[in-house]
């Protein structure tokens, strides 16, 4: 199954990326991410590495969401796959899509740890934030819509899906910004007091939101994925 999903993701990347580039909505978080760090770069550039090591994997989760989100080819439902196989397909696909940003984050943090630019604790918190973020974003990407042409449309998932996506996006961005650019390193914080408190508050708020959303929508996403009709009912 891993091989099959990986192959499908590989072949789906090019048309998906083309679709992603046509959607201007995804540009705003990217601009926002870069604007956040801009004033701090002018003051001191030492945290820029830490910031981008956290943010780039998060961006990759958003890109993967944009590339694969909301679509599944109708052929998938016409082919002889059982409901169980489609369920497995979804879980494996979710695992790959959620796992890739975590892998990037692990890689970047490992390099930074080796370069002595960050403590193990902070590296762990960054990877955890990326893992939470990409887990939730990839569930959304699983909101499969029975769309034969492959054009991105929001279907198959309840309306709250988009709202929660925006909440997680903002919480994730700010949690990572406070963790890497402002606090810098939890072992030797750049700013103490309220900044660190805010960092922990954002970190836990983000984690809780992700857990809530994953628990709430994961099963529904599987339900939409397994049955062609389940996804279509919501379109009618």
């Amino acid at each position: 199954m891993w091989k099959m999903v990986a192959g499908d993701l590989y072949h789906g990347f090019k048309p998906g990326f083309k679709r992603f580039m046509e959607q201007t909505a995804y540009i705003f978080p990217m601009i926002f991410w870069n604007l956040l760090i801009a004033p701090l770069i002018l003051v001191s550039g030492q945290y820029i590495l830490l910031y981008y090591a956290g943010m780039l994997p998060m961006m990759s989760a958003v890109i993967l969401f944009g590339v694969y989100g909301g679509t599944v080819n109708k052929v998938f439902y016409l082919c002889p796959l059982s409901g169980d196989e489609r369920r497995k397909y979804f879980v494996v696909s979710w695992g790959i899509r959620a796992g890739l940003p975590v892998f990037f984050s692990l890689l970047f943090e490992a390099v930074l740890c080796l370069l002595n630019r960050v403590s193990l604790q902070t590296a762990f918190l960054v990877v955890l934030t990326v893992a939470f973020f990409s887990a939730a974003m990839s569930v959304y990407a699983g909101s499969m819509n029975r769309n034969s042409s492959g054009a991105a449309r929001s279907g198959g998932m309840p309306a709250g899906y988009t709202a929660w996506g925006a909440v997680i996006l903002m919480l994730g961005i700010f949690a990572m910004f406070f963790l890497t650019a402002l606090v810098g390193d939890v072992k030797k914080p750049r700013f103490n007091g309220m900044v660190t408190v805010f960092m922990w508050m954002l970190f836990f708020a983000h984690a809780l939101a992700v857990l809530f959303v994953t628990a709430r929508y994961f099963r529904r996403a599987i339900g939409c994925m397994v049955c062609y009709e389940n996804g279509r009912k919501r379109e009618l």
Binding site: G7, H11, G12, K14, N73, V75, P80
Partner: peptide, 29 residues
Amino acid sequence: EVRVKRRIGWVLSEDLFGAGQTLGGNADM
């Protein structure tokens, strides 16, 4: 489902399969 779908061939008047792939690639996939 699987038993039936294995023995059915279909042609639908809509865009199916991956547009970014070759015909051979789609068929193999």
